[in-house]
Design a protein around this nucleic acid. Structure first.
Lengths: 224, 224
DNA sequence: CGTTTTTTTGAGAGCGGTCAATGATGGTGG
DNA sequence: CCACCATCATTGACCGCTCTCAAAAAAACG
């Protein structure tokens, strides 16, 4: 009951807080928030999708695993990102905390009811999902058609843009996470980063901090 | 004017014809229909998304290309499939006719207006997009984590299910299309098919017709 | 029936994977 | 505070899957 009331508050914040996807993705959510420890499961593939989630702090990985343990991370979610939206269905992927994180959540029912009343809200949800689909297609190009070197460069540029940290990128995830996101092995990720450092395109300040050179951040796709 | 009236009719058919995604995806659409010849462009990446499309007959490929010509097909659309939905945005991918085809279309504006009036319609659109996102994630696993052999088997099984042709799968697309969908080369696609035939898992009746064995259609993932 | 395009097949090379060992890093308890 | 241990990251040697390049075979087309 307490939770229900708070989730409604969260919904209100989610839907009325912003009239555009941009606002929806950056505004802080009031209401029901859960905390997860590093590597803790948020939901599992096949579970009924009761909630829609939104990252408040920390980061989250969305992934699927094959029977033999091979894992493919389809996306990382950072503060402002919404995930877990699967209308009237079960979750088609699992979600785990990459780092300790806080996640705001709303029941899918509440969200549907709100969307039914507010046409702008419904439109927002659809736009949000369309954008995720577009990003998914973009990532398919990476997985299907790019070399290891190109995958890493694409990833680092994307992280630089998303974290808005200029050229010093702080990675919340391990090499294994990066490998499973890019469809590579940890060894190849490590070797490729080393190679990029040797050719002066970046500096590995620490394992989780990478300083990108201007040339690497530029749009020029000619990376060898 | 004529077109506008007909597109409204199409919208009505699209949204009231079915109350579930299943119905939406199988029902024939009345209204404004366009025909495309083999390999003709339906829309291009970067174009303003004015319409939402639905395959009536034939098949369509959705893809992105890199500057140097590498192509990644993110999905094939068959009769009943909806594509091109990108709310208030430009198309994030291109669409081409794989075979000569008929496509029903509705303006995005009309669709939004209809969705604003009919909460079920809005819900349908969202559900539709969620499903596509789920399929995209599934395909990422194929592209990032499966071997050439596993990719072909996954593809053939999927085609068998979608075409509902039992074990005789008719492929509307070329080897190049299959290669660009699976993140392989045409040579690898061809060689892998030959290998599957030599091991008795399928019969290449003709280039575009493949008879799958029972064992290959079964869920057993142990394919070598 | 000839031409063009698509598909298959072959030979060889290279990219990324596997296996293994070494080197960092970080957390825990003495 | 430091020693210890477990985990994570890097590096090396080698292998194999898939790509590249090339040619032949088959299919599609006019």
């Amino acid at each position: 009951m307490y939770i229900e009331r708070n989730m409604t508050a969260a919904t209100t914040g989610l839907l009325q807080g912003g009239r555009t996807v941009e606002i929806l993705q950056t505004v802080q959510l009031p209401g029901f928030v859960m905390s997860f420890t590093k590597d803790e499961e948020i939901f599992g593939e096949g579970e009924t999708a009761n909630f829609v989630y939104r990252v408040v702090s920390g980061s989250v990985r969305i992934y699927r695993i094959l029977e033999d343990g091979r894992r493919q991370i389809s996306s990382f979610c950072f503060p402002g990102d919404v995930f877990g939206l699967e209308l009237d269905a079960v979750h088609g992927a699992s979600a785990e905390a990459v780092t300790a994180c806080e996640v705001a959540l709303v029941t899918q029912n509440t969200l549907q009811r709100a969307a039914a009343c507010d046409r702008t809200a419904a439109s927002l949800l659809l736009r949000l999902t369309c954008r995720q689909l577009c990003e998914a297609r973009e990532h398919m190009v990476v997985l299907g058609r790019k070399t290891a070197m190109e995958r890493l460069v694409t990833f680092l540029r994307d992280m630089a843009v998303r974290s808005e940290c200029g050229c010093l990128v702080k990675l919340p995830m391990s090499r294994a996470d990066i490998a499973d996101f890019l469809g590579l092995t940890i060894e190849t990720v490590s070797r490729t980063l080393t190679q990029l450092e040797r050719t002066g395109q970046l500096t590995l300040e620490s394992t989780r901090e990478i300083r990108l050179s201007r040339s690497l951040l530029a749009d020029g796709e000619a990376v060898h």
